[in-house]
């Protein structure tokens, strides 16, 4: 028979970005250990609805750990206690009967709370729009095999491109810095031969847009610890090196005009 857990939850509730929030203390009894963390919240919500209380709002969609929509702080940890796991893939068997679980939204100024556990991460999109792409209008591409990409390079680019944009890196960082997210996108594109023509302008624009929104990196490494895709800190070093180079390169490119 499935083991059942009785839990004590403290869930952050907040009506809107400018409202005062508060914790809701609620007992969640009879939670099957095979339920996912979000299914546990579903159960809590159905019980709230039965009592005519508005359900807790939280972001979620694919529930397969790939869309990056979900993410909450669980007892102070972004995405909770299981390593390399987004909260939708975290299951209740990782908790014990009688546990107290504190559930809060991502805490970062650039991710304002929209309601309860749901935050606004549009700043990430602004960073990508600043240069996180390769300009290749539809129809212009040469045959895919005309530009060989060494396997090691493709694999490393894929490691970086695996980022799901959930924001756990920012939430876990004491400075609310977005270096891991930004550097992952930069590494994905800057490593590939197709990404070279725009490499320097991309780097300068993305880094500076990032700095408009987010704090500064002081190499704590909490981002990597929290990352459900285990994106490597090396990419941050790679980005810093490219940014310094970009400052020089973009000048010399400009002087050629």
């Amino acid at each position: 028979m499935t083991k059942m857990l009785n839990l004590k939850l403290r869930i952050w509730r907040q009506d809107g970005p400018h409202s005062q929030g508060a914790f809701l203390d609620i007992d969640a009894d009879g939670i099957p250990e095979d339920a996912s963390f979000l299914e546990m919240l579903d159960v809590v919500n159905e019980r709230l609805i039965a009592d005519d209380i508005e359900p807790v709002t939280f972001g979620h969609d694919c529930r397969e750990g790939i869309c990056g929509t979900c993410g909450v702080m669980i007892n102070g940890q972004a995405h909770g206690p299981e390593k390399a796991t987004a909260v939708c893939q975290l299951h209740m068997r990782k908790f014990d009967d009688g546990d107290e679980i504190v559930i809060e939204p991502w805490k970062a100024q650039s991710f304002p709370v929209l309601k309860d556990l749901m935050v606004d991460r549009r700043a990430f999109d602004r960073i990508v729009e600043a240069g996180g792409y390769i300009s290749a209008p539809t129809g212009t591409a040469p045959d895919a095999n005309e530009i060989p990409v060494p396997k090691e390079v493709a694999d490393l680019a894929m490691d970086a491109a695996a980022c799901i944009g959930c924001g756990a890196c920012v939430a876990a960082c004491p400075n609310s810095a977005a270096q891991l997210f930004t550097s992952a996108k930069l590494a994905h594109l800057n490593l590939l031969p197709q990404g070279q023509p725009e490499r320097w302008r991309r780097t300068e624009n993305m880094v500076e847009t990032m700095e408009d929104y987010f704090g500064t990196c002081t190499n704590h490494g909490e981002c990597h610890e929290a990352c459900p895709k285990e994106i490597s800190l090396d990419f941050i070093a790679f980005m810093n090196r490219d940014y310094v180079k970009a400052k020089v390169k973009n000048r010399s490119l400009a002087s050629q005009r």
Partner: peptide, 22 residues
């Protein structure tokens, strides 16, 4: 066939052989 060309040009990190081809 055009889709693969387009996506490779955009930087989609498709799996590669050691020779660098798809």
């Amino acid at each position: 066939v055009d889709i693969i060309d387009q996506c490779a040009a955009q930087g989609v990190p498709f799996a590669r052989e050691y020779g660098g081809l798809l």
